[in-house]
Design a protein around this nucleic acid. Structure first.
Length: 559
RNA sequence: UGGGGCGUCGCCAAGUGGCCUAAGGCACCGGACUUUGGAUCCGGCAUUCGGAGGUUCGAAUCCUCCCGCCCCAGCCA
């Protein structure tokens, strides 16, 4: 953690920090700062959650406090153990430690139940027999007040009896609910006698069959915060309307006064960020599971090649505010490149191979050239790369008729092979259809390593792989899952969101890359050995390198 | 004629009455350097803070009105 904090650009101030600092200055809670990250285990965590995680754990760390991991597991219909396990793995991977404090709202069910009886005893809660539809009708609308339920006036004794029988399992699902008695005319709909408990004869991933009534979010979250003595309960903007209710329960119950503060959730261009919609993508088979490298889930990003450091840095740098906003996904990619540029070993890989034969070299020629592993990191050292008479180069690094400003190979042109020799294209071999299938070249033996003794310069340096030594691999090039900048209901998946290339030629060292290992393919981008392809050599592109040539081409086309 | 929020450069976002003729980052545009057209470096990029009034010696920051956008009518969270 401290390691990551040092690497990050200093995080800017934000209104949450201002509040915490003010509270600290006032000596509130004896200077304690306790936060919590409260996921519902009904899906996988995504980059939006990462923002919340970094904030929750970050605030605690910054002010000498602690942050709990608390599962907000009050709805057995949607929650699963698989999600609990995945969430823990993802938070840990991101680099945060909740120590022994893995907590579950479900563990508070007994306490919550007692508090419900307490409110009934105070005449502040009642059992309602209305159906869900009837309750909705009685709730009124945004502009009209609601109407009291006919059961609102039940006696404390009757409410207690009914509520106990609800718990005892005497009634079927949906038959009755427990409601808070607040104000059916409140402008804030959340205060119009919100439901506290519903009957659900369902097995809960944690409490099993111990309960057939389950508390709602509103009757759980604030009290859970209070039980854990959370000082600053941070959540997203849509819960702002719930704060009066959050405060109401705490006040009526006379328990630890946790306070809730709301910030804007993260939105990213070209990205869908609702767990519900992501689940639809998974369930419909449109993507290859929650960890499809195109998914904004932490598991998907991990498989794609994102590092926890880059995600944390991103979260620190986007800031925290109350204004709805959409961050350019290019910024996320920038954070990844910045991190990987510093640490990813460089390797050579030819994705679209074109054969090159160096005619002034004998058939059996075999030598090893020194290649630097990472010019940004002297400690990374160097490696040997085999060189021989027949090579693979990138097809796009040759143009029979080079356009202006094209510095790569063309008939009669000389370029440098990275860490190798200068070569000049002497002949272009084509098939019957006129396609270029091979290049005949000559090399200058004096330029071994890439320097010409006579001081002559070449503009282009291209990567290559010795044909005889190359290892074959599949490479998957990923792009945004959605072409729409703001994907919505009608958006279809980007047909080019993944391009699978077979027969790619890699330098031999890459055969030993471990699953999950991230390297830079020189001039192409950062690639991660796939973790779900077994022994097959498959690399996923995490992000490409900045491509100035592509920009020049674009300008030339436009201008 | 419901309630709750938000509006500072194309995108994030500091800023809480004078040091603001408004930080920083992304993107973009130059240019230097370069054995990755990568990286790095240098330079450019809001006389203006949704709008209009007002208070003040002085306002992005205070007041008033207006405009725009977001959230809320689950026994989801």
């Amino acid at each position: 953690m401290s390691e990551a904090t040092q690497k990050s650009v200093a995080a800017p101030s934000n209104f949450i920090k201002t509040i915490v600092e003010r509270d600290l200055a006032e000596g509130k809670h004896g200077g304690a700062v306790r936060t919590r990250f409260p996921p519902e285990p009904n899906g996988y965590l995504h980059i939006g959650h990462a923002k919340a995680i970094c904030l929750d754990f970050g605030i605690a760390a910054d002010y000498g406090g602690v942050c709990n991991l608390r599962f907000d597991d009050t709805n057995p219909l949607k929650e699963e153990q698989e999600y609990i396990d995945a969430i823990k793995q993802d938070v840990r991977w991101l680099g945060f430690d909740w120590q022994e404090r893995e907590l579950h709202a479900a563990d508070y069910f007994e306490q919550l139940y007692e508090w419900a009886e307490l409110l009934i005893g105070k005449g502040k809660a009642y059992v309602d027999d209305l159906s869900a539809d009837e309750i909705r009708e009685h709730r009124g609308t945004l502009t009209e007040p609601g109407r009291d339920s006919p059961h609102r006036g039940r006696s404390v004794a009757e409410n207690l009896d009914l509520f106990r029988r609800m718990r005892a399992g005497e009634f079927p699902d949906g038959a009755r609910v427990l409601r808070a008695k607040i104000d059916m005319a409140a402008g804030n709909l959340n205060m119009r006698d919100p439901v506290m408990y519903r009957i659900l004869h369902a097995t809960h991933p944690r409490s099993g069959d111990a309960w057939c009534i389950y508390p709602t979010y509103d009757f759980t979250h604030g009290q859970s915060d209070s039980i854990e003595q959370i000082t600053h309960s941070l959540c997203t903007l849509e819960f702002e309307d719930h704060r009066p209710l959050y405060d109401w329960f705490i006040k009526e119950l006379e328990i630890f006064p946790s306070r809730q503060y709301e910030f804007a959730r993260l939105n990213l261009t070209h990205t869908l960020m609702s767990k519900r919609k992501l689940k639809q993508l998974v369930d419909s088979g449109l993507v290859d599971g929650w960890d499809d490298p195109r998914m904004p889930t932490l598991s998907g990003m991990r498989r794609r090649g994102y590092t926890p450091e880059s995600i944390r840095d991103f979260c620190d740098r986007i800031g925290v505010a109350k204004a709805n906003s959409t961050v350019d996904v290019a910024f996320l990619e920038h954070c990844l490149r910045q991190d990987l540029n510093r640490r990813a070993p460089r390797r050579m890989a030819v994705l679209n191979p074109l054969k090159v034969v160096i005619e002034n070299l004998p058939e059996e020629h075999d030598e090893e050239l020194d290649a630097i592993n990472n010019p940004e990191d002297p400690d990374a050292g160097s490696r040997k790369v085999p060189f021989s008479r027949e090579l693979w180069i990138e097809a796009e690094d040759f143009r029979e008729e080079p356009p202006r400003k094209y510095f790569r190979l063309a008939p009669g042109r000389e370029v440098r092979l990275r860490y190798g020799y200068f070569i000049t294209c002497t002949e272009v071999v084509k098939d019957d259809d006129g396609n270029v299938v091979e290049l005949r070249c000559s090399h200058d033996p004096e330029t071994r390593g890439g320097q010409a003794p006579d001081g002559r310069k070449v503009r282009g340096t291209i990567h290559w792989v010795s044909a005889r030594h190359a290892v074959d691999a599949e490479v998957r090039l990923y792009d945004h899952l959605f072409t729409d900048e703001q994907p919505g209901v009608g958006s279809v998946i980007n047909p080019d969101s993944v391009e699978v290339l077979g027969g790619c030629k890699l330098e031999p060292a890459l055969a030993r890359a471990a699953p999950g290992e991230i390297v830079q393919f020189e001039r192409r981008g950062y690639f991660c050995r796939d973790t779900k392809s077994g022994d097959r050599l498959v690399f996923n592109r995490a992000v490409g390198l900045r491509d100035t040539w592509a920009r020049i081409q674009k300008q030339q086309q436009q201008g």
